[in-house]
Simulated scan of single mutants.
Amino acid sequence: MICSLAVKIAHREGKSFMKDAYVTQPFRIVPVGQYQKDNAAYLMIMSSSPGLLDGDDHQIKIDIAPGAKLQLQTQAYQRLFHMKGHSSQKMQVTLGEDSVFSYVPHPVVPQNSSHFLSHNIIHLASNCHLLLSEIVTCGRKMSGEEFQYDHFQNLTECYVNGRLVVKDNVLLQPDRMPIQGLGILEGYTHQGTLIYLNSAGLSPDEWIEAFYEKYGETKDVAFGISALQHDGFMVRVLGYGAEQLYLLFKEMQSALWEKLFLN
């Protein structure tokens, strides 16, 4: 089933707000920032479906007007159910000049025989900030379904003024690769990726040092952070629990949002 969500964020008199939205079942999009004081738009993607089923195709499109700021949230963990074929999701985000987009979704739980393809395409104009993350678990570990999914792939492409500056491809196929071997998960069960990118010419060095000092020795977590060729950084984390990695990313989001995005 093809499921669509399209949102336009506008900016007027110093405030960001949802100007227009179009959704089909099972999507809903709701404002959740009524108690926030920063004049940014806070939206939550909700779904009446328990997760992605065989043949599902999610199409998400977000347009952010110049000067607008959006923090997008999710309702719950994203579950990928048993599939004979595959499911997919494509998210396209366009940031106007001087805008901000931050999205730290809940972890993905790929169940037995699931096959999932995800593609994120982000276009940044000048003086923009982007924060984007994803966490994939080993599956329903407590139900004995550890690494029993078939295929998980998340491709992210980030463009600045039409030029590709970041391309990241996470591909996990437990039955075709030594999933817990050297250079892959190395004994861990969960993997997370976080990308921060700006087109404002701001060096990420201070944030790289601060985050490594704070999280580099986190218990039961392998934490790595490196500078991108363009202005930004990428974080890779390995761990044993989805909630631990999710809360770590949310802390990083809060630090950036408070000190940088809304400066």
Results as ranks from 00 to 15, higher is better:
2 I>K: 13
3 C>G: 00
7 V>D: 00
9 I>W: 04
12 R>F: 08
13 E>G: 00
16 S>T: 12
18 M>N: 07
24 T>D: 04
25 Q>W: 05
31 P>M: 05
32 V>L: 09
33 G>Q: 09
33 G>E: 10
36 Q>W: 13
38 D>K: 12
39 N>S: 14
40 A>I: 07
40 A>E: 14
40 A>L: 09
40 A>D: 11
42 Y>H: 06
42 Y>P: 04
46 M>E: 01
51 G>K: 04
56 D>N: 01
65 A>Q: 14
68 A>R: 05
69 K>C: 15
70 L>A: 08
71 Q>C: 13
72 L>H: 04
79 R>D: 00
80 L>N: 04
85 G>N: 11
86 H>M: 12
86 H>F: 13
89 Q>R: 10
92 Q>M: 14
93 V>Q: 08
94 T>D: 15
94 T>I: 14
97 E>R: 08
101 F>Y: 03
105 P>E: 07
109 V>W: 12
112 N>F: 00
113 S>V: 00
118 S>R: 07
118 S>Y: 01
123 H>S: 07
126 S>W: 00
126 S>Q: 15
127 N>C: 08
130 L>R: 06
140 R>T: 11
143 S>A: 15
146 E>G: 12
149 Y>M: 02
150 D>S: 13
153 Q>C: 10
162 G>T: 04
162 G>S: 03
164 L>W: 09
165 V>I: 14
166 V>W: 08
168 D>R: 06
174 P>I: 07
174 P>D: 01
177 M>I: 13
181 G>D: 03
182 L>I: 12
185 L>E: 02
192 G>F: 03
193 T>D: 01
194 L>W: 03
197 L>K: 03
198 N>V: 02
201 G>T: 07
206 E>H: 15
209 E>M: 10
213 E>M: 09
214 K>A: 08
214 K>R: 15
222 A>I: 12
223 F>E: 04
230 H>Y: 10
232 G>Q: 02
233 F>D: 09
235 V>M: 05
241 G>S: 11
242 A>F: 05
243 E>G: 10
243 E>W: 13
247 L>I: 12
249 F>Y: 11
257 W>E: 07
258 E>D: 12
260 L>H: 14
262 L>Q: 14
